[in-house]
Design a protein around this nucleic acid. Structure first.
Lengths: 359, 359
DNA sequence: CTGTTAGCGCGTTCAA
DNA sequence: TTGAACGCGCTAACAG
């Protein structure tokens, strides 16, 4: 027993005094219950309960060098794009994290370099055990840095260069190809036979993934995949692209439907349709990606692909948790080799609304 | 000088050794620079720089009982409403917090009771100095609890019961009445003379605030404020309300424009207009509130009121920071009484789009 | 202005 | 299975 708490906060010692054991035993009940006899554990647990004891995170962190904090960067969201779904994602992540005893700490950064600095600071001040990244890309310096530093992390989004070789870190992603496949098939069922794509520039890995789904679905369906535009993810870009593709005199075939790489683009396309006096759904089928709030709230409603963000978040936390629990270098041979970093691909769900329905 | 760091992390002692001073002096350079002579400060600062030293948060927290962490709850966002702007708000908050040396820690909670539990846990584990709340209401149990606990907090959103008496806590809010005033005046300038309101139920304090702006603007303009509906903040509710108000045979006057308490309602109204073959803007003027992404991305664009979220966040952090720095009980009389909790009301900005323009 | 002492609350280590 | 000593890295309180 050490001295009683001085600040009105109950400490390990208070519990120990109450349960008439040493502080160490209380600590063991919390962290290594198997080391404590049933009777003692029972008694200590009751004392913990009665005193409403909660271990002090800072002390624990200081001692054990793990904070149970997960760092997440919040990006500046752009008002001109359909919601990044960041709030949904963050909520899901916070929930999953809480269920495993972690908390989320936000990390704000202006640019990619600043992000590294921010990670570094969070890391050096011992505030964070691991990071969740979003939107990593080929040769992402963040991945390199995190790997070099030996910091735990998991990524929402594949990094394509890793796929071929051995994956070096855990990731979770939504299957964009499957998504555009669903959208394309759905439009074909509505009778469309010239389905175009409004996608992202070809240096976007996510964009290429989604494009693949469109191409392959068209092949499967025996339809041409020949009308396509590739533009940045902005409303105006989608609008302009649609005007271009729908122009009769431009030489190529005129699409009767357009699948888009994002809701932002799809909403731009719908603006263009309105300007041309065409009705989404009836005249030209349109689909988006993300199922952002705007998809449900615009008129007519926009058919889109919903990302299973709750599942993504749960899986990310699961991966991190597994990695953090992994026995550090020198693990007993009997426990078997640690599982290699894994990736999980989750399927999006098609939400059909008026923009793709022929009435 | 104590022993060197054992984990490859540079500590205060490393810096002290390098600068040939005691650890205490380094600490003072960081936390009370005025106590240290210029020469020493200079030398220590250089050592800090050279070693890339960052103080360990846990140790600091453990000792000083302040974590520089601000707790924020992330609510479950509903896909059927225009973005809660939570991501924009969180980003701004994280940025403002960082500029004053704070970090944000997320707090997930399912309900109001769970929220209190979550606050309590974060508090007891010494993980947070203060909280930022959103959407507090009359007799909010959270406010009561936080006040009783003596925890620092600031609220986004007024709590109306406080306004009349002495405010007991700092708040920041956006002036909803001014917002609907702007919208109403704008519509009047477009030639509308029967401007209706689609608002929230009258037990909503925010809703009543916004309604006031509409009523008063109508009075100022010499227009009637007699057509109104009060419904929950959902798309379908807005749609139904518009159908009801626009029905010619219902007895009352038929509005030529509708100001709405939210973008969600306004987008529902626009759906109703489409269903009645009416064009937003040309036939019936419509305005929303929040300037959510959907407002810009829907067709025609929705006129809305942009909330100055960056300013709100900055002010919230400023208030918290001031409160946290405030000298605890027993402050020297010379410093004057601490400023009473203050509130700040910020003006929204009208963003005009097609839904309110007569072309 | 600078240094010494002590200890925040907890978990690792090792002995009983 | 349980406990005593110790120290994680830092800063409050005081002494010089």
């Amino acid at each position: 027993m050490r001295g009683p708490a001085r600040h009105g906060v109950t400490t390990l010692d208070d519990v120990a005094a109450r349960a008439e054991v040493s502080a160490m035993t209380v600590s063991n009940v919390l962290n290594h219950p198997e080391r404590v006899s049933d009777a003692t554990r029972e008694r200590v647990s009751r004392a913990i309960e009665e005193l409403g004891y909660r271990p002090n995170r800072s002390a624990r962190t200081l001692r054990s060098r793990t904070s149970n904090l997960i760092g997440v960067r919040v990006e500046r969201s752009r008002g001109d794009r359909a919601a990044l779904l960041l709030d949904q994602f963050l909520h899901a992540l916070a929930e999953s994290a809480a269920s495993r005893g972690y908390h989320l700490i936000l990390c704000h950064a202006a640019g990619d370099t600043a992000e590294l600095t921010a990670y570094q600071e969070l890391r050096q001040t011992t505030a964070v055990d691991a990071f969740v990244l979003t939107g990593a890309h080929r040769d992402d310096p963040r991945l390199r840095w995190l790997r070099d530093e030996g910091v735990g992390f998991a990524v929402f989004g594949r990094t394509w260069d890793e796929e071929s070789s051995t994956p070096t870190h855990p990731w979770v992603d939504v299957d964009g190809a499957a998504g555009l496949g669903l959208a394309t098939e759905h439009l074909a069922r509505q009778g469309h036979d010239e389905i175009g794509l409004v996608g992202w520039p070809s240096d976007s890995e996510v964009g290429e993934d989604r494009r693949t789904g469109w191409v392959e679905a068209c092949h499967r369906l025996g339809l041409p995949a020949r009308v396509e535009a590739h533009v940045v993810d902005e409303f105006e870009a989608g609008r302009d692209a649609a005007h271009r593709l729908l122009q009769a005199g431009r030489g190529g075939p005129v699409p009767t439907a357009l699948v888009c790489a994002s809701d932002t683009l799809a909403l731009g396309v719908m603006r263009a349709l309105a300007e041309r006096g065409l009705r989404p759904g009836t005249d030209v089928g349109v689909t988006g990606f993300d199922n952002s709030p705007s998809a449900a709230l615009t008129t007519p409603g926009l058919t889109s692909l919903e990302q299973p963000l709750a599942d993504v978040a749960a899986e990310l936390v699961r991966l991190l948790d597994a990695a953090l629990r992994e026995v550090p270098p020198g693990a007993p041979a009997g426990t078997g080799a640690p599982a290699p970093p894994t990736g999980t691909l989750l399927a999006p769900r098609l939400v059909v609304r008026e923009s793709s329905r022929r009435t």
